[in-house]
Design a protein around this nucleic acid. Structure first.
Lengths: 334, 334
DNA sequence: ACAGAACGTGAATACGTATTCACGAAAATG
DNA sequence: CATTTTCGTGAATACGTATTCACGTTCTGT
């Protein structure tokens, strides 16, 4: 891998001149420039970003931290971020926090060691304790897909989305509801609020189920469904959970959407490719990522390190309605 | 972000001594060491990996290049690579080649500019033209999930896997076969070989269909299925295609596995979570990634830049049989 | 034709680290 | 006690780049 100094020796000029030719900031003698360019091409010169990063304080690296890369939603996020970052001349360092605060802190340490220019993170948790460590960061950063009072965030309101789902299910005439997700999840809270607004007695008509263990989750859901006989509206906290629920119901012989209307979250390819299609809350991933990357890069290049208030950028979610919530006959849709 | 020099000034020693304390290679006065450690902790010192990378020639960065991060299989790959790399003290730079040779070359250029210590790549194509640019790399690298004569590769034999699928379908008594994938794909070739071995007249009984456009692909598959009435064995080149095929068939009212037995590839979560479960070729992603990362890092640390022959490490694939190829009644299994 | 501006270029420097070298002091050896 | 070895440490250097500074040359304006 040839360096500027060697290039300079070969063409008989000084290293700074080579730098000037290759970066084209200041004017140089056209003849010299041509000679240098030719020589650089001939030897396939590749600038050393490490050295460049050490000198100026620009590494042109962005870090992306997500809880689980294998989740299709986050895979989409990473793809979208990589896409727009690449166009802007930035490369990305990917970190998997595995829903562990400890790993998250390790990632934060690491990405600071690499002097990345900025960070885009989807934290595992959005409470005080789960986000405190972000406060100590000295680099520009953005929170994606979550909303926190204390941090710059780009997100879709899970709370509103939950209410939207509630409205949709109520419109279908459903009277019994199940939320499959963690207690206290914004989606769940919004769902509850939406139901209440629609006149539902959530104490009696809404159930929340969550188990880390897939098997136990399955059996609890099955037990729930067999405890009554009218139609249920089930809201799963993401498409993967929705897929699991669908799987359970189909296995137990409960028709969807006939006996249960099912709604997922994230609108990943799963929900559209499956039969029946699953109604799902769509987040405008592409737009959000483009916005967050461009916004972050803008801040980086303006070098406005500190002085800016906490900003929240909320994107609108929309419900993509599919067969899983068809109003259809209550008698076991095909 | 405090530096060693500043730390040195604060503790009244020289910068090299700070370096020695923090890295612990050579012996230093215990009292001095303690003072330096305390000071480092107090100011939350983080080593500058950029500077470290510029000096020694170790960046502790690994590049990973895949054609499409959003494909669950590659998402699994990245997660597995990140996991073992992290344990070994390496971080990863993720690149998406988007199945474009041009982008692939750009990625290769980029990752060389960042002086990554090594590369793990899943190339878009495995022919001569599609892999030539790897030959010019000066850093250690490995090819994952593909096999090329000229390059170090860690893979599952797609050819053998295809034959395995053929054997499985033949065992189910099927006589008509469809491969959904690109002409010339190793999976398809192996599938054909396997069928021939089983006495199938592949000229007449095997069809290959591929279209980039989902709509046209759908209509061609539907047309194919309506051109005869006996049971078909369909082998899709990956789980996402298999899901698409299943979707088409279900929409047209063709029962799976009744009228068509379906086999996918990669054994992603999709194939197990869907109803009916899709029989799929499983690649031992976890093991392969662990092997390739550890092997690559071994080479990096031995600094054996050039001298080693092209090695191929083949992992065994296995078929995970699910409901989509149940031998069941030919009369439309529910 | 002369003062000053504009231009092209090289020397020097900084970025933060690891490493080599040399030097003095202390310890071990005879 | 003299001599060698070991140990702890600082000075110097290298890694590859971008930038600042200064210097000399050519161009512009009166």
């Amino acid at each position: 891998m040839i360096t500027m100094k060697e290039l300079a020796a070969l063409t008989g000029v000084s290293q700074p001149t080579v730098s000037r030719v290759l970066n084209g900031n200041t004017s140089v003698n056209p003849e010299v420039a041509k000679k240098v360019w030719d020589c650089a091409r001939e030897h396939n010169y590749q600038p050393n970003m490490i050295a460049r990063g050490l000198n100026g304080s620009q590494t042109c690296l962005l870090a992306v931290m997500v809880p689980n890369i294998a989740n299709p939603f986050f895979a989409d996020v990473i793809k979208a971020i990589e896409g727009t970052a690449e166009k802007a001349g930035y490369s990305i360092l990917t970190f998997n926090s595995d829903y562990s605060l400890q790993k998250e802190e390790k990632c934060l340490r690491l990405l600071q060691q690499y002097r990345v220019d900025g960070l885009i993170a989807a934290p595992s948790r959005d409470d005080e304790e789960g986000t405190r460590h972000f406060g100590e960061l000295t680099i520009p950063w953005r929170i994606l897909t979550r909303c926190s009072d204390r941090m710059d965030s780009v997100y879709v309101s899970h709370e509103k989305a939950g209410a939207m789902v509630a409205a949709h299910l109520l419109q279908r005439g459903i009277q019994r509801f199940l939320f499959v997700g963690k207690e206290g999840d914004d989606k769940g809270l919004g769902f509850e609020r939406g139901l209440r607004t629609g006149g539902v007695d959530t104490e009696r008509q809404l159930t929340v189920i969550w188990e880390e263990d897939r098997e136990r989750l399955s059996s609890r859901i099955a037990a729930y469904m067999s405890s009554f006989s009218d139609r249920a509206g089930i809201f799963a906290s993401n498409d993967m959970e929705a897929l699991l629920v669908l799987n359970i119901l189909q296995r137990v012989g409960i028709p969807v959407p006939g006996r249960a209307a099912l709604v997922g979250f994230d609108n990943t390819f799963i929900s559209s490719q499956i039969q029946p299609g699953i109604t799902s809350v769509n987040q405008p991933v592409e737009e959000m990522c483009r916005f967050v990357v461009e916004d972050l890069i803008r801040q980086i290049q303006k070098k406005e390190k500190k002085p800016h208030a906490v900003r929240h950028t909320e994107f609108a979610a929309n419900l993509v309605v599919r067969a899983s919530t068809d109003t259809g006959s209550c008698s076991g849709g095909k």
